[in-house]
Design a protein around this nucleic acid. Sequence first.
DNA 1: CTTATAAGTTTAATAATATTAAACTATTAT
DNA 2: ATAATAGTTTAATATTATTAAACTTATAAG
Lengths: 264, 264
Amino acid sequence: MSVKSISKTMDTLDYFLESDSSKGISLKEICDHLGFKKSAAHHMLATICDKGYLYQDLKSKKYFLGSKLKKFGEVIDLNANSFINFADPFLKKINDATGEAVHLASFEGTKLITLSMLESTHPVRVDHGFLNKDNAFHATASGKAMLAYMSDASQKKILKNKLEKFTSFTITNVKQLSEELKKIKKNGFSTDDEEFQPGVFCVGYPIFDNENKPFASISCSSPKFKITSDKKYLDKIKNSVKFSALEIGKYFKKTRKKGDKHAA
Amino acid sequence: MSVKSISKTMDTLDYFLESDSSKGISLKEICDHLGFKKSAAHHMLATICDKGYLYQDLKSKKYFLGSKLKKFGEVIDLNANSFINFADPFLKKINDATGEAVHLASFEGTKLITLSMLESTHPVRVDHGFLNKDNAFHATASGKAMLAYMSDASQKKILKNKLEKFTSFTITNVKQLSEELKKIKKNGFSTDDEEFQPGVFCVGYPIFDNENKPFASISCSSPKFKITSDKKYLDKIKNSVKFSALEIGKYFKKTRKKGDKHAA
DNA sequence: CTTATAAGTTTAATAATATTAAACTATTAT
DNA sequence: ATAATAGTTTAATATTATTAAACTTATAAG
């Protein structure tokens, strides 16, 4: 079950993130964009303001993000930033060597998340506007690289929901995906052969934490035609990504004791 | 009207801020602390997780703050940090001169908020653990300094709710408070004579923005006995706070054009 | 300055939702 | 192996959020 009023609340907060909220957002705008009735939205916003997550300007009546939300960032930073900062030069290394887009991914629960990314430096480059897709574990090199090394129980939970078909190549059959994951464990790396975006081929390597669990992954994306036209190109990318993934993995051995919990 | 499930959601998120959530928080702990029934809490948490504001660790089942919340901090920083950073050395100046606790306050809607603070350097010092009290506009030097210079409409909205009595000296009568605010405008500064905490005397000066609206305030808190035993001590504090308030006010003339909207 | 229009707020009835207990599953400890 | 604890799911029902309509306030037009 899902609690609708909570869902609407968070869609509203999301809207403050997506749009430029620095000059405030009116009740009408929120209703228009999210399809709410104005009286219901007003009750919702009054409650959110009461809790300090938003506030309403006394004169203009427009809504703004409350400073309380800033505190979350401060708390989360403590855990995650050091890992991302450590990984950054190694992502840059791949980007320098290949010129292609590089992504550092992790997961929170059953959600695949992008921790950081570097754009392609080539004139013909891959568009990554929609990369933070929710249920893309099964369709991305990043996702599959982690999925392959997870416990069966974790795999099961992530694959519980219907596998969305992003392109004609997306694997939407659990049994078929299972075979694919076995292959990934044998090879040590994953690929995404136009399974998420047409014309885009990706290579992914897992990053293991201090307990040898897949904690994150790196992927490198390139236009498919480059891979097909130049057989050595794939090897070049693979070597580069593999090296960085191994190096970043050393971070956990250096910084974490066994049993330490790490948040992405 | 207030939407209960939204209220509970935000109390839950607040709990992640207040307690150390770095190792995750269990469903049971959330229920125990906030008095929720486990099945209701489970539905609520599932919805929050679905929206990415929290996530549940696949193995331990514990809940963690989602990285999405980090993004709010990034957006809010853009607006507010520059002002706080600008003000900081001027607060330090008061702190150096008096040794007393100094607060920079502002407001969001009808809520008084503390932007930054410096502790007293004296052995006998004022405890400010509970300074972020919600409806303390009428009972604090910071609050009254801003309130006095606001439009009647804004004053009215802030004083709409019942004025809470924090000490025996707290002004809880609107008419009496109105007289006090007139006096503040005449004098140019506000005081809090044990109206919020027993034994604590504060002096507050407003800070005006580029449109001459009270946007923030500084207050300096000291033990009451110091004020009564040394007649010159109050003047010393007043001069120091007044100077800094005027200097910080220049920030708006420097950085904002008329009509610019500023968020705290 | 008056009137019209639009945006925001409040209310109370009702439709819809969130809550509940109970049953169930999974995990951990004994 | 069993008990105990924590988490999950379900479906009935009691409570709550939603709605439309009336109302207020602010803004624009005449």
